[in-house]
Design a binder for these strands. Structure first.
Lengths: 220, 220
DNA sequence: ATAATTCTGTTGCATAAGCAACAAATTATA
DNA sequence: TATAATTTGTTGCTTATGCAACAGAATTAT
């Protein structure tokens, strides 16, 4: 399951000048990684916040079997770290560069504890962090809303309705493939396809490729 | 579904003396409510943090049909508010006193924006708030872990395993009724009962009333 | 351009799980 | 203590859904 984190930016409301000033205050130098390189492994008690200044990376879970799942996709301005991963178990979680990357690491405690050098925008940073975490929590909550429906049809319609209201339109584009959607709503893909076909035939939705249109009200 | 929030306390690490000082800084006077009284309604843009200083209360969702669900149970030291409820839709959400209650309200922005009166423990408060939100997010994440299994059996075993590891024991007590459990894992209660019976017969668990014991390893 | 991989669409089959309906046990309330 | 309300435990019936297995379309990699 891929979480596309659109949430607010860690440094929104903070100028480039102040950003640089903060980074020196946080004592954080940029590090470079080549595509494919491991940026870090998640560890139980570590509380380092990472920032992708430039490039793309992925947070992946590697299972004992060797198979991998992408937990999150990161790009310019994305943040990552144990603090944003709400599981006790960090086994097999790592961050891998998908392209050449410039990354900063900041000590979480340093962000939280108010700064002796009195960075003026510290409070702004904390507020941003808060809204990022709240946004992640909202995504989890949304996911639960979908998963807590009993049938495939109800899960699908719940998901579609959320997407629709997010786009302020009955027409929207799925943010990922149908296979990934089946994964997200935790059902068998073939069974989901069968159900989509039915919902389509019954005139509730129209769907071709990734373009979905809600046609009539669905009351669960 | 009831979320029992055990998370850390809003004012842990802050003395009674400093607590009082902060409250006067926050300009927050205690308010009293009788059992059954409505403490507040959740509103979309409101960002007020409530603290139950004494007593018990519940966060409830009232549906158009008139039926209600308890979203959260609050007791001494619990906090509540729109900030901790990660849905866009706040319709029909209210906080009701379950017993006589003393409640404080604090402006969220005042907590987040660093204090001009320079309360020394402001940073501690922010850290506590962070850990509360993270804890809530972890609970959501845990819920998803359970819900994303396909079968009732898998959901049950996932749930039991989480409880077991939380208690550091193969023996633990369910925090709510079996009906509520069916609700939590989002399956039909009778079907869940049938499955519990089977799992029991096959020797995976032992369960009587709310006491559960994991007997042998279950590999999904 | 070609090969390889992933995604989409479909079907038969077996069964897990939803629904309804009931009685007994337990817990809450008057 | 009596009564109400909720929870637990059970069953028959039906069907939705998981699983396996396949072929063609669409991407992505070489």
């Amino acid at each position: 399951m891929v979480n596309t984190v659109s949430c607010s930016h860690m440094f929104s409301g903070i100028s480039q000048e102040n950003y640089n000033r903060m980074m020196s205050c946080f004592n954080s130098a940029p590090k470079k990684y080549l595509a494919g390189e491991t940026i870090c492994f998640y560890e139980p008690k570590k509380r380092t916040v990472g920032i992708i200044e430039k490039g793309r990376a992925v947070v992946v879970k590697t299972f004992y079997s060797g198979s991998q799942t992408i937990l999150e996709q990161l790009s310019d301005g994305s943040i990552f770290g144990e603090v944003f991963y709400f599981h006790a178990n960090t086994d097999g979680i790592s961050v891998i560069a998908a392209s050449e990357c410039t990354v900063r690491f900041i000590d979480y405690e340093h962000i939280m504890t108010s700064c002796h050098n009195a960075c003026q925008h510290h409070s702004q940073l904390i507020q941003n962090l808060f809204s990022i975490i709240s946004c992640k929590a909202a995504e989890l909550s949304e996911h639960i809303d979908v998963l807590s429906h009993r049938t495939i049809r109800e899960k699908l319609m719940a998901y579609f309705q959320i997407q629709s209201s997010k786009n302020n339109s009955t027409k929207f584009k799925l943010p990922f493939s149908l296979s990934a959607l089946a994964d997200y709503i935790s059902v068998d893909r073939s069974a989901m396809m069968r159900e989509i076909k039915k919902i389509k035939e019954e005139g509730y939705i129209d769907i071709s490729q990734k373009e979905v249109t809600l046609l009539k009200e669905y009351i669960q």
